[in-house]
């Protein structure tokens, strides 16, 4: 009853590899965006923000709400590109604000507590958001009506693979967001302050950096990226529901650790590697072992490079 391949396995591997790379990059782009928020917050606060996955879920729902508000029941659609941009912007803004609120109420009062306290607080926030969404929007699945914005069959046939328009949109959007983020961090004053706080919070404060402002900024940006990831997930995988943040958050966290937690390019790299690893596992090994492969990759990387692929040595505080 078990697998009998038609054709030589090697032929199938070569024939499907390009398509699997496209599939993997899409998934990886989403993971990378989630991982960035994890990594940024960890870099600045050494805090694992386990509510991050739920911020992503809220972003997916905000995008859904905007989509439903602007798609008419019938009749011609007005400028789908503008609707997509609006979905992204509203979700990013909404999630950014949510991130600031979470920081304000759940983490700030515990900033000088032992590190386990904000961790527990993060889990509490996660449960709170999930259940709040379930209570208000019920546990039903919602489906993005992506087909009304982008035709499901739209895309380019590359001959060896098909790049659908939705996947192109997801990958390009994610990359644009990452470039903007790099610019923010490397070229602006606030980005410089962020890097300073990440290296040494007390020294940065003594040099006149407004640490509170930097932390708020970090939460805003990280959460906004998660919100964008939520909308992109909705566009490409269509199904959103209140519990989607748990698995995605875990994957984002894994990607962040894989790339070196606290390291921004590392989070991007980790996300793409994890997405590709999962996709290749399904494509060339077995769908059953998808998560096994993903975590084996993590373990191997951590064995060889305990701080992750691009992890810098973080100065230990006494």
């Amino acid at each position: 009853m078990h697998t009998q391949e038609v054709g030589k396995p090697m032929d199938i591997f070569i024939a499907t590899l390009p398509q699997q790379i496209i599939n993997g990059l899409t998934l990886g782009a989403v993971y990378a965006l989630i991982a960035l928020g994890y990594s940024m917050v960890y870099g600045v606060l050494q805090l694992l923000n386990f509510a991050h996955g739920d911020v992503y879920m809220v972003g997916a729902f905000i995008g859904y709400g905007v989509m439903m508000a602007f798609i008419p029941e019938s009749g011609p659609l007005f400028a789908p590109v503008i609707i997509i941009i609006l979905m992204l912007l509203v979700a990013m803004l909404g999630c950014g604000v949510l991130g600031i609120v979470i920081e304000q109420f759940a983490y700030r009062p515990l900033r000088n507590s032992p590190r386990i306290a904000p961790l527990i607080s993060a889990l509490g926030v996660s449960f709170f958001i999930q259940n709040a969404i379930q209570l208000t929007l019920t546990a039903q699945f919602r489906n993005y009506e992506t087909e009304k914005l982008i035709a499901p069959a739209a895309g380019i046939d590359l001959g060896f693979a098909r790049l659908s328009a939705t996947r192109a949109l997801v990958i390009v959007t994610a990359i644009v967001l990452m470039i903007v983020l790099q610019y923010l961090i490397k070229r602006t004053r606030l980005g410089k302050a962020m890097r300073a706080v990440a290296i040494d919070r007390e020294a940065a404060a003594m040099m006149g950096v407004n640490v509170d402002r930097v932390i708020i900024f970090t939460f805003f940006i990280g959460s906004a990226l998660a919100g964008a990831a939520g909308v992109l997930t909705g566009i490409v995988f269509t199904r959103v529901w209140h519990f989607m943040g748990f698995a995605a958050g875990l994957k984002g966290f894994t990607a962040a650790v894989l790339g070196g937690i606290g390291n921004i390019p590392g989070a991007m790299l980790g996300g793409f590697i994890l997405g590709l690893a999962e996709t290749f596992a399904v494509g060339f090994i077995s769908a059953t072992y998808k998560d096994v492969v993903a975590f084996v990759v993590l373990i191997i990387v951590l064995l060889l490079r305990p701080r992750g692929l691009l992890g810098a040595r973080i100065p230990q505080k006494v």
Partner: peptide, 27 residues
């Protein structure tokens, strides 16, 4: 009939693109 392959997914999975590629290539 011939069974070309048997795969297991989890109930949480939402990304079926990779599996679709496998099935498409299996004939």
């Amino acid at each position: 009939g011939e069974i070309l392959g048997r795969e297991s997914v989890t109930q949480e999975d939402t990304d079926f693109s990779s599996l679709a590629t496998v099935i498409g290539a299996s004939g």
